[in-house]
């Protein structure tokens, strides 16, 4: 099958952010033998499958999608990829900067043929879009996501203490400030600013990646940063929150304990070993290919196949 990912409704900053979440999906589909159009320049007719990563703040864009779906029906296979919590804090679908985002997602869900979600939201999405439409995409190992440059295994060349994954938020800054107060060098990922070659470089050179929710109101820990670190052989310290399929590959604690756990991990000196061990276990136990195979058994996709 051909999976065509349409991303033109994302801003240039957002495009910079979503790569870490999208590439494992692309590579998993390719590992199954499918063809992936990673940046579609047009909508494709069936049997190609059009996938829209969620971010629908523009009423006009959504209206045009709904009109196209009404007009073309099964000739326009339409899928959504939801990576954010429907009811989370900031920055999520309820973000006050994007008032129409959630409403538009709710308009699109009933019209979509299927929905993939990287968070445990299948029941909620099926409640809005219809039964048998949603599948969970649990991230797993994807050989195609391994960086071309080999991992840095000499501890002295891991010159950055902490790569703080994700955008800059007050909730995260509290921990970043605490780490700096302890004398640790912290790099705030700010993916909307740093291109991937810079972020990848810092990730590779860091003693650990710190993965935290963006806000205390968020229900789930975003998985993309953890999955990226695992492919880069960089140890992960994670905030223990909901949606914890990956905690077995991290050092995890609640928000209040993060500064101490990060400090202990950096100063303990075993960060390279931790990264290597976590990657080996992740590689052995998970597979993005298998994840996508499970996600393709939805009725709409089986019909297309």
């Amino acid at each position: 099958m051909i999976f065509s990912f349409y991303l033109a409704h994302h801003s240039k900053n957002a495009l910079n952010v979503i790569g870490d979440g999208l590439e494992p999906v692309y590579r998993g589909l390719e590992a199954l033998g499918h063809d992936v159009v990673g940046f579609a320049t047009s909508l494709l007719p069936a049997p190609a499958v059009n996938v829209f990563p969620e971010f629908f703040e523009d009423d006009g864009f959504v209206n045009s999608l709904l009109a196209a779906k009404r007009a073309q029906g099964a000739q326009f296979p339409l899928g959504l990829l939801c990576t954010e919590d429907l009811d989370g804090g900031t920055p999520a679908v309820s973000d006050t900067d994007h008032q129409r985002r959630r409403a538009n997602l709710r308009r699109l869900l009933p019209a979509a043929d299927f929905v993939w979600t990287t968070l445990p939201l299948v029941d909620e999405l099926e409640g809005l879009g219809g039964a048998g439409k949603a599948a969970r995409l649990d991230y797993g190992w994807a050989e195609g996501c391994v960086p071309a440059a080999p991992p840095i295994t000499q501890p002295s060349l891991r010159d950055m203490d902490v790569y703080f994954y994700g955008s800059d938020t007050p909730y995260r800054n509290t921990v970043a400030d605490a780490l700096r107060a302890r004398g640790l060098a912290v790099f705030l990922g700010r993916q909307e600013f740093f291109p991937s070659y810079a972020a990848d470089d810092v990730c590779r050179r860091s003693k650990l990646v710190l993965a935290m929710r963006a806000d205390a109101a968020d229900r789930f820990l975003p998985p993309a940063g953890i999955v990226k670190a695992l492919h880069f052989v960089t140890a992960v310290v994670a905030e223990r929150a909901g949606g914890g399929a990956f905690y077995g590959y991290t050092q995890a604690t609640d928000a209040a304990g993060l500064a101490q756990l990060v400090t202990d991990t950096v100063r303990g000196g075993r960060f390279v070993e931790l990264g290597l061990d976590a990657q080996a276990r992740f590689r052995a136990a998970t597979s993005m290919r298998d994840t996508l195979a499970r996600a393709l058994v939805l009725p709409a996709l089986k019909a297309l196949a």
Partner: peptide, 19 residues
């Protein structure tokens, strides 16, 4: 003939690689 014009300061590497 269709021509896609890249914007080097806009499109990230995973997009330009695909295109």
């Amino acid at each position: 003939l269709s021509t896609f014009v890249t914007a080097r300061d806009v499109l990230p590497m995973f997009v330009t690689a695909d295109v």
